[in-house]
Simulated assay, not measured.
Amino acid sequence: MTTVVDINRTLGPLPHDDVPSRDEDGLLAELDRLRIDTACVVHSHAVHQDPRDGNEALDRVGSPRLRPVPVLVPGPLGTGPWSGGAPLVRLCPRRHGWSLTGPHARRLLAALAAGGTTVLLARDETTAAEVSALAALSPAPRVVLTGTGYRALRELAELLEICPRLSVDTSTLCGHRQVEWIAGRYGAHRVLFGTGAPDTDDAGPRHLLDLLDLPAADAALIAGGNALRLMGAGR
C-alpha cells in the first residue's frame, strides 16, 4: 500500500478563518477524510505570530502521524541557534522580516545543510534570485519550494535546471499534467505531495494524486516516498 505524506500542512487556528485543523483532533479527522497517512506540520502561531510560541506548541503534539516542522528565524531577534533535531524546517523571511541572503541567514543555512535538514520555502516568501543563491552555497541546503502555481512554471523550470537540490510540492500544481511534466523532465524524486492546507485547498491535490499518469513507482515516490526519505535523512 502506498504511503501518503502531506509535506506542507498547518496545524492551529488561522487569524482569518475557522478551520477544522485548528486543533490536533480536527486535523487528524481531515487526514482520515482524505486518506492521508502522515502530515508534516507547522503551527499557525509560528507563521502568523511568534515562531517561538508556535514551535513550543508543536512540542505538545501527541499523534505520531503529525511530524513537527519548526519555523526558524536567524539573528539576535530570532529563534536561537539551530541545534538540530528536526529533519524539516520552514523559513518565512518576508513574513518575519529578515533577509534570506544576509549573514545570519547564511550561518543558519550552512548549519541546516551540514545537518541534512530540508528547508520548506514558499514561493511568495522568496525570489528566483534568492533560490539560485541558496543553490550556490557550499554546502547547499535541500529546499522544497511550495506554492509555485502555474504562473511560476517557467521560473520553476529554470530553477529546477540549475538547482539540483531543489524540489517542489504539489499544492498549487493544478494545471493539466503539470506534475507529470515535471516528474518526466526532472525526475519524480523532485516532486512531493503537499496541500498547503488549510491556507489552500487540500482535496484538489489529493484527488490529483490518485489520477497521476505515471509509473506506479514514480507515483509512490511523489505520494510519500520522497518525504519519508527526507525525514529519514535528517535524523
Results as ranks from 00 to 15, higher is better:
residue 97 G to Q: 03
residue 103 P to F: 12
residue 115 G to S: 14
residue 172 T to A: 09
residue 230 L to A: 01
residue 200 T to D: 06
residue 135 A to K: 02
residue 195 T to R: 11
residue 21 S to N: 01
residue 195 T to G: 15
residue 131 V to N: 09
residue 179 V to Q: 03
residue 112 L to S: 10
residue 49 Q to K: 07
residue 235 R to N: 03
residue 135 A to L: 08
residue 3 T to D: 04
residue 172 T to H: 02
residue 135 A to Y: 05
residue 13 P to V: 15
residue 51 P to Y: 05
residue 35 R to F: 08
residue 43 H to A: 14
residue 126 T to L: 11
residue 10 T to P: 08
residue 68 P to S: 15
residue 221 L to T: 07
residue 18 D to L: 09
residue 104 H to M: 02
residue 234 G to A: 05
residue 123 R to G: 00
residue 166 L to S: 02
residue 88 L to W: 11
residue 74 P to E: 14
residue 21 S to R: 03
residue 3 T to H: 09
residue 175 G to R: 13
residue 52 R to V: 12
residue 217 A to R: 05
residue 120 L to E: 07
residue 147 G to M: 07
residue 35 R to I: 09
residue 94 R to E: 14
residue 105 A to P: 15
residue 3 T to S: 13
residue 40 C to V: 10
residue 142 R to L: 00
residue 186 Y to G: 12
residue 235 R to C: 03
residue 129 A to C: 00
residue 209 L to P: 11
residue 217 A to V: 06
residue 97 G to A: 04
residue 48 H to R: 10
residue 202 D to G: 10
residue 117 T to Q: 14
residue 1 M to Y: 10
residue 232 G to H: 09
residue 16 H to L: 12
residue 104 H to R: 02
residue 37 D to S: 06
residue 62 G to E: 14
residue 33 R to D: 13
residue 219 A to N: 02
residue 106 R to T: 14
residue 75 G to N: 08
residue 166 L to M: 01
residue 206 R to C: 10
residue 164 P to L: 00
residue 70 P to K: 08
residue 224 G to Y: 04
residue 57 A to E: 12
